[in-house]
Design a protein around this nucleic acid. Structure first.
Lengths: 187, 187, 187, 187
DNA sequence: AATGAATGAGCATTCATTCAT
DNA sequence: GATGAATGAATGCTCATTCAT
């Protein structure tokens, strides 16, 4: 499984460096120092390694953010969620190339994949704790949708803000974004 | 320019039908009934025709939505914007394949491209009227960002809701989405 | 040698099912439930297992046909040969996929290989009894050639008749074929 | 269409020289002096060029044989057919490598393909003249089958005789073969 | 302006075979 | 005897792009 990891690392660096489409499997295996056949031993094709990489990297970020808020005290679950989101925004700001790679896929869809994956059960547990503690006017079903909306919003705005500097640099956008999250959750 | 339009139409139908990556320029020219060289007379490459197509289709939708709200009376600019957004959501719900093609690119980024393009000056004018009439607590600069956020939010949520049915079908998501827009703008 | 048999059976089923070229050794070992290296313990390559399989299956058919005519009385050795041939034609008609696999290789060439193989000495004996009993105008040397011609003719015609239905279905071809054999041998 | 012919010639020479499986399309285009894409402009794959080559070469031989017997007088249509067959046997004896390439496919199946192909209408006409002139005890339907049998027999026996020298060299086999044809046709 | 035959770099994918365990 | 991870040469095929007509 050492070789599989070498392949994942090599693919990640190349995807970041020169884009996914411009990276040939030939280059991945060369960089990983394994034979071409070995790639196909562990991955179906480029799509496959890409998805595994996205899940892995997304999970890494989420874990870091969870770790950050774990031992701190918050006056409300909303504050906790906002802090969690802020950590992720800051992290992605500092890792522009990682974010460019994750694109808007770092969103609920992958959050969902992560929480469905047994490998990342701790994230699932954290999510459920969040949902059960937050007190809003929303029904549980509505709350799921609202949380989805928040994650998509953060992911989407942060992406264009960081990667394309649209509509403004992230420093200008972040306060408005966090303020918007608060508005959505409170009352 | 007849041939250019034949190419755009052919490309659109093929992109919708079998995806962008799976459509070869060979097929586009065959469907358009023109020679291969003719393609390169009008477009730089596949990216180029794709962008022109996205701008064209996005503008079409925006024009329809503007037309819809033109002659109606609204109690507030916020209501007007929400009605405008609702029209777009409904239109995209009915044109799932068009939306799948536009992906999340039907967003501010392209809205911006449209407003910058002389060809679509009426859209630009409409946007400016909107911005100057809406009364919120935001500064003009902040308002631009907030409108950006709303468009990204609508575009992003509607996309996953319609195309992937995540987090729920569009009927369930729409009321919450419109409600969220109101929350963001009011107060 | 259990594993060798498991490999032969697996290969046979796959060859029948999806053709020889389309069957990878990978699939054979997977179906046989043995390791890849084990294949090379018993067979040189795909060609090798194929040849062994053809000899094995061809011999099986010949044995069955010999068994069929063993205890029956015939008015002449020609009648006996014709009955032998008819049994084989009927058997192959019922086992179209087997025949498609054996192709035209179920012919003298392999009949020869079988008779040369110590493992199948009873077939060799039967062949020699045939040759010494049949009374025709041919010299022994000519008779060998004529018998070769008959086997090739039967194998070749039956093949296209059963597998491709050319020039006609086997029911129409068979009487003419047996009649032709009689013509060749008599006088 | 010059390039298409260059490809056909190159493929033929390589197929003869080193076998079909051992010839890469890369080599064919290199030998033909055209680009790789050009191959796929004219042929679907290796199978496709192979089939076209077999039909072309088979037709060539048949045409030569027809030409040979065209202006000669024969005491009976049977003699004419035997002479026709003998010409083909002799031709293939002299062109062992061509025959190895055509394998047993130089048979009725391809004779049929040729006669169905508009390009080779003269061959079709010749075949029909043959069939209508020959007088045997067979019904027209039976005669078709019998002619098929003869062609398969000649093709099959000549192949192993020439290519594998089984059951004997062609000089020994030929008289018996022609004699057999006569037996089949005469009463 | 329009054509379409020709290009060939580029790439994914397969698979028989080996060998250390 | 048995294994199966690792190999990497071999190869088929695509497709955007050009350019002489």
């Amino acid at each position: 499984m050492l070789k599989q990891n070498r392949l994942l690392d090599a693919a990640y660096n190349l995807f970041i460096e020169k884009g996914i489409t411009n990276t040939a499997i030939d280059e991945i295996v060369k960089k990983a120092g394994v034979a071409k056949g070995t790639f196909y031993l562990y991955f179906k094709d480029k799509e496959d390694i890409l998805e595994k990489l996205i899940i892995r990297k997304s999970a890494e970020i989420v874990k870091k953010a969870l770790n950050e808020i774990k031992d701190r005290q918050f006056s409300s679950p909303t504050d906790k969620l906002i802090c969690f989101m802020e950590y992720i925004i800051d992290y992605l700001s500092k890792n522009k190339y990682l974010f460019r790679f994750l694109k808007k896929d770092f969103s609920w869809v992958f959050f969902k994949k992560i929480t469905e994956n047994e490998e990342f059960s701790e994230i699932k547990a954290a999510k459920e704790t969040f949902l059960s503690n937050i007190k809003t006017g929303y029904s549980p079903e509505e709350l799921e949708i609202v949380i989805f909306m928040i994650i998509e919003l953060v992911s989407s705005i942060t992406y264009s803000s960081i990667v394309k500097e649209e509509p403004a640099p992230i420093e200008k956008v972040k306060p408005l974004l966090l303020d918007t999250i608060r508005k959505i959750l409170e009352n």
